[in-house]
């Protein structure tokens, strides 16, 4: 299949599908995390946290796949109409998004690994995910919990900016930046 990989002008199906799949799960993870720690029912809260951990690991798997694919597939060049400032900052913003995608699941994994609650992790009840080899303590748990919290809020702020930029391209600048992330056929020079 030709349109699976990126070319110099368009995104291929693999990047497009992974982008939207990860995009939905990532934003869903933020919403789930936000809700689960504010749920008054301890039972619902417990179940939602387990679900958040399951999706977190699903996300980690998808993101590793995405990064591996991306390393062999350069991103298409931006349309000629895009200005110099954005030409410089967009790759940095995208790099930062990749950093958050890796740091969030890893900080979450570290958090459950050092937690003195010692709650096991079974993604979707399928298998036991081992903990990271980190020493458990209340102090380490507070640290990773805070780290995860800051990463989640900083990450979602950057995603908001990212979405705003995409919408700006589509509705104000009317270029192909958004549509080429929807279908390879719209990626024309």
């Amino acid at each position: 299949m030709q349109s699976l990989t990126n070319t110099s002008a368009r995104y291929g199906w693999a990047m497009i599908i992974l982008h939207w799949l990860i995009g939905i799960v990532f934003i869903g993870q933020f919403a789930l995390g936000f809700v689960m720690v504010r749920t008054t029912s301890q039972r619902a809260s417990f179940e939602l946290i387990q679900l958040h951990k399951s999706f977190g690991f699903l996300l980690l798997g998808l993101i590793i796949l995405r990064i591996a694919w991306r390393l062999r597939n350069a991103a298409p060049a931006l349309p000629a109409s895009v200005g110099t400032l954005e030409r410089r900052t967009a790759p940095l913003a995208h790099f930062a998004l990749y950093v958050f995608q890796i740091a969030l699941p890893l900080s979450g994994w570290a958090l459950v690994s050092v937690s003195t609650l010692e709650i096991p992790t079974m993604p979707f009840d399928l298998f036991v995910m081992p903990n990271l080899p980190l020493a458990e303590s209340d102090a380490a748990e507070s640290f990773w919990s805070a780290a995860h919290w800051y990463l989640a809020y900083a990450g979602i702020a950057l995603v908001a900016l990212h979405i705003a930029a995409a919408l700006r391209h589509h509705f104000l600048l009317r270029d192909s930046v958004l549509t080429r992330m929807i279908t390879p056929s719209s990626g024309r020079e």
Partner: peptide
């Protein structure tokens, strides 16, 4: 021996 687990056990979850 773990206060947070005790609170969970006493709650309507258990």
């Amino acid at each position: 021996g773990q206060g947070r687990i005790d609170a969970f056990l006493r709650s309507d979850a258990v």
